[in-house]
Amino acid sequence: MSRRVVIAPDSFKGTCAASRAARAIAEGWTSVEPDADVVLRPMADGGEGTLEAFASAYPEARRVPVRVTGPAGWPVDAAWLLLPPDDDAPSGTGVVELASTSGIELLGGALRGRDASTLGFGQAVRAALDHGVSRVILGIGSSASTDGGIGLLTALDARFTDRHGVSVPPGAAGLDELDRVDLTRLRALPERGGTVLGDVTNPLTGPRGAATVFGPQKGLDASEVARADAGLARLARLLDADPDAPGAGAAGGTGFALLAWGAGLVGGAAEVAALTGLEGAIAGADVVITGEGSYDAQSADGKTPSFVVQRAREAGARIVIIAGRVADDAAAAGIETLSLTEIAGSAEAAMADPLRWLSEAGRRAARAEQG
């Protein structure tokens, strides 16, 4: 009987999407064991790679191209994913990813903390609604902005104005001037609702809020963080949602805007796993391989690889983690690790040709299986 190998990595952020990483690892494994029953289930938690994870799990899904306004205001060519109809969504499900429409990677390192916007994400959501989908699944990780989701809701026909009735500017800057919100023309959720995939549980405001915790990563200095936090508090008084709800602060407050729209927030990794059939794939597996760009103690405590590891343990499978870098504090009983940095000889070499070294890691994992 052929060995069953499930390959379920997260993305190697900035270098390789989860789906490409999974294929490269599989190529390495099958070069050693051609008869292995290899199942690919690339993972995501709502951030970069979410669309690819669904596309890999649903071969019949269709990409629908869309041109949107990127986080800095220039056009971005993106796509949303149309999943086939089923009993829960008779007109299909639209999967939309913030990372590819309003994500921080689209800025190319030129952060725009004050004026980056979620408008493009909202335009892609609107395109899915215009198509007539029965429900939407929205991945909101990897955002570039701290605009409280006002760009998103503006694209869905909400209006955010200052005290003179003039539309506020995009981004966190617009929150400074926000005085009034008009939701009378806001597009409704599709008939089967919306599910939001998030990777954090932070509230909207305060010491654990969107601006304080994540604003510096997006280019806000200390004074701008304070202004953005005050602006988000102002938004919280104008929209009917709980700013303290877990995940309200996700994606610079986009989680809060989506709660106000009526969508439900869930843990991204668990939901992606459920929707792509990860647990069914792992049941009866002999080997489970996961990984990400940098594997450390934080990865082992709540991030996507830890979710996969837990399911693999429950199935009694051999567990292998392949990562660009494996930190000294990441050691755990019963888990084998392979570092692309060590295999390639340096981090620079690993990042220059990640697919080559992922394939080599897959080969090494398979050879170790054979003893």
Score class of each variant (00 low, 15 high):
76 V>I: 07
268 G>S: 12
358 L>S: 07
224 E>I: 01
266 V>A: 13
301 D>Q: 15
214 F>G: 05
131 H>C: 00
253 G>N: 10
294 S>K: 14
310 Q>L: 07
7 I>M: 04
14 G>L: 12
207 P>V: 07
260 A>P: 02
95 V>F: 02
69 T>H: 09
69 T>V: 13
188 A>T: 13
325 R>I: 04
182 D>L: 06
79 A>L: 00
227 R>D: 13
222 A>D: 10
169 P>F: 08
261 W>H: 13
311 R>S: 04
240 D>R: 15
235 L>Q: 02
153 L>K: 09
297 A>S: 14
235 L>H: 04
355 L>P: 00
137 I>G: 03
216 P>G: 02
34 P>I: 08
232 L>Q: 07
186 L>T: 04
158 A>W: 02
280 G>K: 09
242 D>P: 14
96 V>W: 12
15 T>C: 15
77 D>S: 13
168 V>S: 12
214 F>N: 10
286 D>F: 04
46 G>C: 09
73 G>Q: 02
224 E>S: 13
345 G>R: 03
323 A>F: 15
138 L>F: 02
202 N>H: 03
293 G>N: 04
274 A>H: 13
337 T>A: 12
52 E>A: 15
323 A>E: 14
272 V>F: 07
210 A>P: 05
349 A>E: 15
261 W>N: 09
173 A>Y: 05
83 L>W: 13
210 A>M: 10
72 A>Y: 01
255 G>E: 01
308 V>Y: 08
4 R>A: 10
349 A>N: 05
6 V>M: 06
57 A>G: 11
81 L>R: 12
109 G>K: 11
240 D>Y: 06
53 A>N: 04
279 E>F: 01
111 L>I: 05
64 V>D: 05
139 G>I: 05
67 R>S: 15
223 S>M: 10
81 L>F: 10
260 A>I: 03
369 E>R: 14
190 P>F: 08
26 A>R: 15
347 A>P: 00
166 V>T: 15
28 G>M: 12
304 T>Q: 01
354 P>C: 08
211 A>N: 03
351 M>P: 00
